[in-house]
Amino acid sequence: MSSNSSEDAITEKILNIAKKNPKGITDKDVAATIPELSSEQRVMMINKLLQQGLIDLFKQGGSFIYRLKTQSSKQAVKGADNEEKVVFNLIEEAGNKGIWIRDIRVRSNLANTQLNKVLKSLESKKLIKAVKCVNASKKKVYMLYNLEPDRSISGGAWYQDQDFESEFVDILNRQCLRFLQQRADNIKNNPRGPIVGRTQSYATAAEVQKYITDLGISNVKLEVEDVITILNTIVYDGKAESSVYPDGSKVYRAIDPLLPAPGLVQVPCGVCPLIHKCCSTGLITPQDCIYMNEWLD
């Protein structure tokens, strides 16, 4: 039974590394620690462990990770009644995207009150947790206690405890704009011709990301996509235009509006909140309007 004992040893090893990395291990990690294993054998072993319910399989950023099932959760579910087990399994299945209470109810066929009770008890045992969804503040989803919520639930870098960090976004918006503006003037009368000038005035999202990272204003790591989101807000602010390079990467360039401030906004009436109430006679009239007085003095 030598094969059997060696199998046990390998199982042990895999479980050990999984234990050391509670966040999960990848296939590569396994291969690195037990190099003598062929990939086929590795898959077999993993499958076996999965079958035994010792580890869990997650998908993260395109690759699979394995994670040790917490002993406690197993035990807890063991001790629980049937309903709790069913609900727990449903929540477990949903992974880090979580599952909505309505879906649990439909799929578990439990009555509302009963389900609430089950969820409460699971929550009090710290097996599951409720996470608020950022794009629907009322909607709560349940997931296993030790999971990190997915971006679509937590909102990614812009959210802290489900609260939108508008100041952070504002700062980034300003910094990105500053970066773009630094090079924007290159297009004007560039001695090497306007096309070179234009290329010099463009910045790719990756460049901006590097600049922002170097500034060190963010303690969260910003991906290129995050920076693109910010850059797009600058485009919507009308302070930059974007275009696409032949290789498909997006580039941005700071621009001025086509017109200087038009006459309408230079007179007090153009920005006056009372304009619709302002008449020739009555309480609000142009003759003795205080906005006008201030503006004329």
């Binding site: 086509l258 906004v265 153009g270």
Partner: peptide, 11 residues
């Protein structure tokens, strides 16, 4: 569009 945008910005 540019005029309108200015107008919205100021208002």
């Amino acid at each position: 569009l540019c005029t309108l945008e200015h107008c919205v910005t100021e208002r």
